[in-house]
């Protein structure tokens, strides 16, 4: 029954902004083709953690890291590893939709072009495929050369997902992808995540516990920079082992 394959493994992660410790001894395994939700109150380190997985935190000056993150057993922080290469394999969708101020087509084809792909037919095919996978194609197929900023917030977020999919990553990171969306757009994104997990390993940060319960297979609960509890979503929500997890999911604090 247990066919879990470890895609990403974090080993004893300690992370600091200057002298402030944001993560303490976090160890966790992310399984292939599963959705892992990271929940916890604001400031618990969940966004910091997910941004370590594709080395985005390096853009913040004056940070330091101890521990290792293995992507298929290769340490992504090894000096020989190019962060650009890691980010090609691990895509990220951000809290606020951030399409480029370019056309819908240019947004999706961007990742292909920076990877040196020039074959126009291939790019066109890939853009169409990605938009279909992101459940946006039917809404935009007639105006693919219009500015992406004209789309609604929910459409923009699905465009950002399509933009990620075009470069064929192995892992998709979602950093509170529905934080700025209305309930209808949110449910569309959630449906999409359930669909995408067939092809990708997915990690989603959310402070909406219902969302975590709806979309994820595994849930990790973070508090004050520590991983308090990790397990099957069903178990975490029905029979949490730790008192603090129980308090959080029953809404006693948050």
């Amino acid at each position: 029954m247990d066919r879990r394959i470890v895609k990403i493994e974090a080993r004893d992660i300690n992370f600091f902004y200057g002298s402030r410790q944001a993560l303490s001894s976090v160890s966790i395994e992310i399984y292939k083709n599963q959705v892992t939700a990271i929940i916890g109150p604001s400031g618990c380190g969940k966004s910091t953690f997910i941004r370590l997985l594709n080395r985005m935190n390096e853009l913040v000056p004056n940070t330091s890291l101890k521990g290792a993150i293995l992507l298929e057993e290769e340490d992504i922080f090894d000096p020989s590893v190019d962060p650009v290469e890691i980010r090609r394999r691990i895509g990220m969708v951000f809290q606020k939709p951030n399409p480029f101020p370019k056309s819908i087509f240019e947004n999706v084809s961007y990742g292909l072009k920076i990877n040196g792909i020039t074959d126009g037919n291939f790019i066109e095919k890939k853009v169409g495929e990605s938009l279909k996978k992101a459940a946006l194609w039917d809404e935009v197929k007639d105006r693919i050369h219009e500015n992406a900023l004209k789309l609604s917030g929910g459409q923009q977020q699905r465009l950002c997902i399509a933009r990620c999919l075009a470069v064929e990553p192995e892992v998709l990171l979602f950093d509170e992808p529905c934080a700025s969306l209305d309930p209808i757009s949110t449910s569309k994104i959630e449906e999409l995540i359930l669909e995408l997990k067939k092809y990708y390993t997915i990690v989603i940060v959310t402070h909406n516990m219902q969302q975590a319960a709806r979309v994820s297979d595994y849930t990790a609960f973070f508090l004050l920079g520590e991983l308090i509890e990790f397990g099957k979503t069903q178990d975490i929500f029905t029979a949490p082992k730790d008192k603090r997890t129980e308090d959080y999911i029953t809404g006693r604090f948050g």
Binding site: L59, V84, G91, F94, I114, V167
Partner: peptide
């Protein structure tokens, strides 16, 4: 230029110069 655009580009595997 919003930082989020830089992040979006870098997260897609673009280099800093790109």
């Amino acid at each position: 230029v919003p930082q989020s655009l830089r992040e979006a580009s870098l997260a897609l595997g673009a280099s800093k110069w790109q």
